[in-house]
């Protein structure tokens, strides 16, 4: 089925509740090909033009769920939502970015989904459209399962505030080419509220917000001046974020008990992850305040 409008799609889904919506198919078809999923029917969302674009709406941007990563990575989009653009540019190889969509990334809700920490930091909301009409849900409620998607609903739009201030997304991976995030950090400045908002991706099932660290660092910034920050404060912010988001490594015996620098084990890996998050958060703050 290839509905041409969101309404048609919702109707089609209501008519065949076992059907599965497919946008770019970059997540879904992998599961189908691996035999993990055998959908009775597919509802292709690719022809729904209203979902493929974005528009302004009183101080916010309303993003169609069908926006591809490639589209979000373009300069016009990046000028307004730089962190989301950076996340989109870093998601997979070009073939995947040409097909994969914002909506698919959210619904898949992979812990390493790159747009998720950005949406969390932006405190974005999503519009879920079902047979009874639409409802607006904070993205964090959707991801944590506090307010999950209901049967027969489609993800229509994502609303993000336009903050007109620096935003950064940084992703640490295990190779130079496109790869899953080991950890990612999204950081946005909200000068209107004199706030720094930050979310850490890939280290937990959902993006984590280090609220105390955000609050603390917001107080360290000279909002009326050049928005500079002392490097020591930026480093402390990194540590603060990491401590909040990555559990303390459990030392497995003495660190020196391994011979010849054969340091290893889960404790070392956890310590490493903490350090990675700390460096990412510090660098993100530094780039935002540059």
């Amino acid at each position: 089925m290839l509905p041409a409008s969101l309404d048609e799609a919702v109707t089609a889904l209501a008519a065949s509740p076992a059907a599965v919506p497919v946008a770019g198919g970059t997540d879904l078809m992998g599961a189908v090909n691996a035999g993990l999923l055998r959908p009775m029917a597919l509802i292709g969302l690719g022809r729904i033009n209203e979902l493929r674009g974005w528009q302004y709406q009183d101080g916010t941007a309303q993003l169609g769920a069908g926006l591809t990563h490639a589209r979000m990575g373009r300069p016009d989009f990046a000028a307004l939502m730089p962190a989301l653009a950076e996340a989109a540019r870093s998601a997979g190889p070009p073939q995947v970015r040409n097909a994969g969509t914002l909506g698919g990334n959210i619904v898949t809700a992979d812990p390493a989904g790159d747009t998720l920490p950005v949406l969390a930091a932006l405190e974005a909301t999503v519009t879920l459209v079902g047979p009874e009409g639409g409802r607006e849900v904070p993205v964090s409620h959707l991801l944590t399962g506090l307010d999950p998607m209901r049967g027969g609903e489609l993800l229509g739009y994502v609303r993000v505030p336009l903050l007109h201030a620096p935003q950064v997304f940084l992703k640490a991976t295990g190779r130079t080419g496109p790869s899953r995030a080991v950890a990612s950090v999204a950081l946005v400045l909200d000068p209107g509220r004199r706030a720094v908002r930050c979310a850490v991706g890939a280290v937990a099932p959902v993006p984590l917000r280090p609220l105390e660290a955000e609050q603390w660092v917001s107080g360290c910034i000279d909002w009326d001046g050049d928005r500079a920050i002392d490097p020591a404060a930026a480093a402390a912010f990194g540590e603060y974020v990491a401590a909040a988001c990555v559990p303390e490594p459990q030392p497995a015996g003495l660190p020196d008990s391994q011979p010849d620098g054969m340091e290893g084990g889960p404790a070392a890996a956890a310590a490493r992850l903490r350090r990675t998050v700390s460096v990412l958060a510090r660098r993100a703050l530094g780039r935002a305040l540059k």
Binding site: S90, L170, T176, S179, V279, L280, R283
Partner: peptide, 15 residues
Amino acid sequence: WLLPGGPGGAGDPAA
């Protein structure tokens, strides 16, 4: 400069 971590990655020339 293609840094470790790739284009648009988290790499920092200073490090």
